[in-house]
Amino acid sequence: MYASKATLKWRIRVTWIAAAALVLWSAAHGANGGPPADRPSDASPDAAEPDDTSPAKAAGTTDLSDGRHLFETQCARCHGMHGAGGTGANLTRPVLRHAANDQQLELIVKDGIPGTAMPGNWFLNDQQIEQVARYVRSLGHAEEESLPGDADRGSQVFVTQGCGKCHLVAGQGGGIGPDLSDIGSQRGSDYLRKALMHPGTNSPKNEAGYAAYLVVVAALDDGRVVTGMRINEDTFTIQLRDAQNRIHSLRKDKLIGFRKAGGSMMPSYEQQLDARDVDDLVAYLAGLRGDTQ
């Protein structure tokens, strides 16, 4: 039974799928038309994707367009359309922290990164994984983004605004908010700017896909109200960290009110900083690559 399966080799392009479906349908109903295995692999050129008719394609090799296409549908939601980062890491760098070489990068695309929000992509085949990885690698050859701000001055803004009360940089500062020592590797400048102006609108996610710094307001049955960031939660309990970095362990059946407020414990700097301060602060943060001492 399976000997015949081995001879099957289907390659049907999405771009002529509708036509193929008609052919198949006709075949199923006794009209002329062979099974899909009889069809050539590139039955018609695709005007919408000129890359597909390139010599490289015709020669049986692939260029970056397949990888880009997969990236834009599967990866861009977190990594940004151009790979500059969002809730997922900024990939426009020659060296990726978790992927020192191509093999590691392909493994990450396939299996994800345990302990992070990066999921595995089990439904991509080996060729598609290789295409995505090659495209991601190509992002690292993009020219370094040129930012308008002054990073040195931005470091002063960071100090004067008291950012270090909540954030660590190179081991110095507070541990309430995210450690920013490597934030420039993880996030693009657009993301950093939005995080300063509208904190909490595009919060990073944890491994299970939950917003990592979600603000929760809980009213206890003894009259107290606790506002804090969710550390963890299950069906019966929730653990919060308040602005004083105190941890609260709460049983949901003891709460008389419970609200996932969204937003962020971090204040918005939209009114507090002028445009130059913001540019400078973004330049400073974008330059934090885990090697600042």
Binding site: K5, W10, R11, I12, F123, Q128
Partner: peptide, 13 residues
């Protein structure tokens, strides 16, 4: 839900 090409190869997704 996404749709892509599908190649049949024995023992592959």
């Amino acid at each position: 839900y996404f749709k892509t090409d599908a190649d049949y190869e024995p023992g592959q997704p």
